[in-house]
Nucleic acid binder design. Sequence first.
DNA 1: CGAGGTGTTGACAGTTTTCAAGCAGAGTGG
DNA 2: CCACTCTGCTTGAAAACTGTCAACACCTCG
Lengths: 243, 243
Amino acid sequence: MTKAEITAPFLKRLKVSTEIDEEDERAIKSLPIVTKQMANGEAIASIGDRPSACCLVIEGFVLRSKIVGVGQRQIMAFHQPGDIPDLQSLFLHVMDHDVSVLGNCVLGFIPHTPLQELIKHRPNIAQALWRDTLTDAAIFREWICNVGQRDATSRVAHLVLELYTRLKAIGRTDGLSFSFPATQALFADAVGTSVVHMNRVVQELRNQGLLEFDRGRISILDETKLRKAADFDALYLHLDPSL
Amino acid sequence: MTKAEITAPFLKRLKVSTEIDEEDERAIKSLPIVTKQMANGEAIASIGDRPSACCLVIEGFVLRSKIVGVGQRQIMAFHQPGDIPDLQSLFLHVMDHDVSVLGNCVLGFIPHTPLQELIKHRPNIAQALWRDTLTDAAIFREWICNVGQRDATSRVAHLVLELYTRLKAIGRTDGLSFSFPATQALFADAVGTSVVHMNRVVQELRNQGLLEFDRGRISILDETKLRKAADFDALYLHLDPSL
DNA sequence: CGAGGTGTTGACAGTTTTCAAGCAGAGTGG
DNA sequence: CCACTCTGCTTGAAAACTGTCAACACCTCG
């Protein structure tokens, strides 16, 4: 993979929100990035770690999770190509949660030191990255609402629409469907329900003709009804309004 | 109020995480801050707004919330003196949630422009503020876990310990108790339960001798048991380890 | 073929919400 | 001082939602 290919989704993302000039772009392309293939479930960083590099998602998905109480897992975020899921480790040195791989994934590891240099000397990039961590936070807030106020059916509908909307913004959807290698158990961990209940919710959404889960592919069948069931408003994603 | 008094909790907070030199301190003290007294429930910023200033909490508490579905409210964060609850509006120009006052409160409003200048020319301060937004995000993540995985009793216990720990870090606790002007309905909105159930949980915690709610004052009666009930680990708060 | 992961189902138990009502205290105005 | 209102807290009973347990079908892979 060339540097251009590696940094492409990342650059595209940054440019949505911020003026990135040629020198910024050169600086990003000259970062020392080590790419690595990783398989489903592999750990990138674990709670208590003190990482010395950040990981850029190039292909595939990454998730952030935490074990709560007696072994239950809560997933707190899904990350897609162009994201840096553990950028926070630059400033919060101890990991307070786990970061791991979903499906097969290509990651680029960027050591903290050159990244810190980049932030110091390229204010545009610093600002874009800061903004990125703020939209992450906005998504966390929406998840609090999701888990706190909506019933299980709405939660799943909402999560699907979020994934769809974010993936569409980076051109990784195929009409109204997209590839997402998650089992029902994983979805259950993300919306805070049991696997059994998750299964019933999936069936209900299927029977009502709203969406279809099929071996790593999610298809939206009736977007209008799904939006209504989900109580979904994309404002919190802070995407480029032109999309 | 003098500038020194206004900025004191804020400066104290920044210094915990970052080297702030004298010039940084001078720059902060010369910010044009307009203070304002506000009363319980007053709105600071609402969803859809495009604020042109950020608000610094000087005395009292501020909360962030969102209306979900048919009028239910989810509280997503509580902020204490030294916090800037809407710092994100510097980079995410449209508010995706509401910010309002809890109890009586003194706020300092700082226009975006001088704040942006400060960030541009004082990298230490920029870094400290960025770090602050990252700890906010860490708290959001923990709230997702709280609402997603714990039962109502643990959730309340967890929230109380979080408030206690954060307030202790800024010296606003009184032994094992602290002042926090929240009704049970407010707590219900924060942990995602109904008011009725919240009341039952409060009584249970009282009966078990874990804590006491009394007109705006919360007292921890048995810290060890409460910690256990809450499944609480302060790691995610990223506080100065010397505290 | 057997093992393990994933999806599915039924019955039952537990938690939480909803509805409806009553109580206590603070503040208001007559 | 006494209604009166308002808000916050409390209680009981029924209904809704969700979790747990146990079992089985299906599929892939070694």
